[in-house]
Amino acid sequence: MIPSRSPFDPQNPLEGRVITTPFDKVLGWARKYSLFVYPFVTACCGMEYMSVSSAHYDLDRFGAAFPRFSPRQSDVLWVVGTVSHKLAPLVRRVYDQMTDPKWVIAFGACASCGGPYDNYATMQGIDTVLPVDIYIAGCPPRPEAVLDGVVKLQKMIQESKQVWK
């Protein structure tokens, strides 16, 4: 129930209308619910990404589903799937083009550690070339695991020191 506002009192104009809180918290709260996503989808995990981001699991509930296809407009890089050594410079380049603040999610076993591919072609985890904030386990991860990862990222964003200047 929404509490009814107290009648306006000219002697005490802030009463019931204003809350005070650290600036960092407000900024963190705003940032965690307006994550623009850059999906870097390379392999089978993409199927789970699709299922998470479409109506059934509805990632948009968490304010984190709006895909931007320019890295310059996005906040979170989702690396979804296997990344080969040949592709590694491109992932790094996409990451470098994103504006701060930015976060990275390694979606699935391949992006986290190479997954089932321990061979000449596959990068053994994207964290060998860029910093990763959240690792989501699974091959592929269940949508629930992905949602859990997103919520954990939001918690991390909320609790971190906000850089804004």
């Binding site: 050594h85 590694a88 410079p89 790094r92 061979n119 000449y120 072609a121 060998t128 070339v129």
Partner: peptide
């Protein structure tokens, strides 16, 4: 398939299984 600068032919049986030739990174 592979990139310029890659040494060897990886589906040969004598290509070392653990040999990595990343373009960037460790």
């Amino acid at each position: 398939m592979l990139y310029e600068g890659f040494e060897g032919h990886p589906l040969r049986k004598d290509y070392p299984k653990t040999k990595r030739q990343p373009l960037i990174g460790p």
